Simulated scan of single mutants.
Amino acid sequence: MHNVDVENFDLRFDRLTLADVSPQRMQDEAAAIFELFLRREAEFGVHPSVVIHYPDISDRSDKGFIGEAARYIAAQADSLASAGRALARIVVLTTFGDLVGPSLVAAGFNPILIDMPAGPDHTYAFTFDPMPTERGLTLYVEAVNEADEKIRPAFILKLTDSQGRLHGGACGSIHDRGGRRYAYLATMTVAAEAARGTGTFLAEELFRFLRDQGVSTVHLGTQTAAAFYQKLGFKVVHRLVPGMRIRTTGGKEIRDDLVMLAMDL
């Protein structure tokens, strides 16, 4: 722990790992950072050309997404079509690729392996273009196991003020594969009231920490912050849904893509 000055705003900076605190403390800290992240995400809308659907991943029946993915998604598409909303593209992002892949591939979906050694296993994107056109509707289906044991937080970085209010944080997991060490950044965010430069400071401290841990490559996915991460040096590995999210800044409409990113440290 130490204090830092971000644009003359005094904050306490903490780094936590499983060597420092209990797994439960790590989970609680990660939950607080994720709650802040959700508040910031609420500032972004979904573009009218995109419909987002989150299946119930606890439903393992033959009527659920995991039980029979192709039939489940066809029902979603039929529902949209009956409302006069024909689909041009379907994109599925899931950590259950091993379970739903056979059904989706048999139905004509294109499988895309998203290889993140420190991220969830069996992460895939599946795409299908029933009516290819740049102006059509995209159905985005996300089925991700956030409780995956593999991605339980191994590190927490956080910035708090003198009253203990969270101004920013980052958390994720670290794993080894093939003689190299990788990190998966589950969440990184800053509060709306955070001083200018807080996000960049947090990112730089994150990279310093990961290098100290011997990490060679870090992966993440984002719907709203691709431009920020690219400025830091991340490269787009997969661009899954262009223009998915929307926000207005200075009277100008800005659209953000759903992308998967990677950076070598």
Results as ranks from 00 to 15, higher is better:
residue 3 N to A: 14
residue 6 V to Q: 01
residue 17 T to F: 08
residue 18 L to F: 07
residue 20 D to E: 15
residue 23 P to I: 07
residue 23 P to C: 09
residue 24 Q to S: 14
residue 30 A to N: 12
residue 31 A to S: 13
residue 32 A to G: 07
residue 32 A to L: 15
residue 32 A to P: 12
residue 34 F to C: 01
residue 34 F to S: 12
residue 34 F to T: 13
residue 43 E to G: 02
residue 56 D to E: 10
residue 58 S to I: 00
residue 59 D to N: 11
residue 61 S to Q: 03
residue 63 K to S: 11
residue 67 G to V: 01
residue 69 A to L: 09
residue 71 R to H: 07
residue 73 I to N: 06
residue 73 I to P: 02
residue 75 A to I: 02
residue 75 A to S: 07
residue 77 A to P: 03
residue 80 L to K: 05
residue 81 A to T: 08
residue 85 R to Q: 10
residue 86 A to M: 04
residue 86 A to R: 08
residue 90 I to L: 02
residue 91 V to T: 12
residue 92 V to R: 01
residue 96 F to L: 11
residue 99 L to W: 09
residue 100 V to W: 08
residue 101 G to P: 03
residue 101 G to W: 03
residue 101 G to C: 05
residue 108 G to F: 12
residue 109 F to P: 00
residue 111 P to E: 06
residue 114 I to N: 01
residue 118 A to R: 03
residue 126 F to N: 01
residue 129 D to V: 06
residue 130 P to H: 07
residue 130 P to Y: 06
residue 132 P to H: 05
residue 134 E to W: 03
residue 140 Y to A: 14
residue 143 A to C: 11
residue 150 K to V: 02
residue 151 I to D: 06
residue 156 I to V: 14
residue 159 L to G: 00
residue 161 D to M: 09
residue 163 Q to M: 11
residue 164 G to R: 08
residue 168 G to E: 08
residue 185 L to S: 00
residue 186 A to L: 01
residue 191 A to Y: 09
residue 195 A to F: 04
residue 198 T to G: 02
residue 200 T to L: 14
residue 203 A to L: 14
residue 207 F to H: 09
residue 209 F to E: 00
residue 211 R to D: 05
residue 213 Q to I: 00
residue 215 V to A: 03
residue 215 V to K: 03
residue 216 S to Q: 12
residue 219 H to E: 05
residue 219 H to L: 05
residue 225 A to R: 02
residue 229 Y to W: 15
residue 230 Q to E: 15
residue 231 K to E: 10
residue 234 F to K: 05
residue 236 V to D: 09
residue 239 R to S: 11
residue 242 P to G: 12
residue 242 P to V: 13
residue 251 G to T: 05
residue 253 E to R: 14
residue 260 M to W: 08
residue 261 L to S: 06
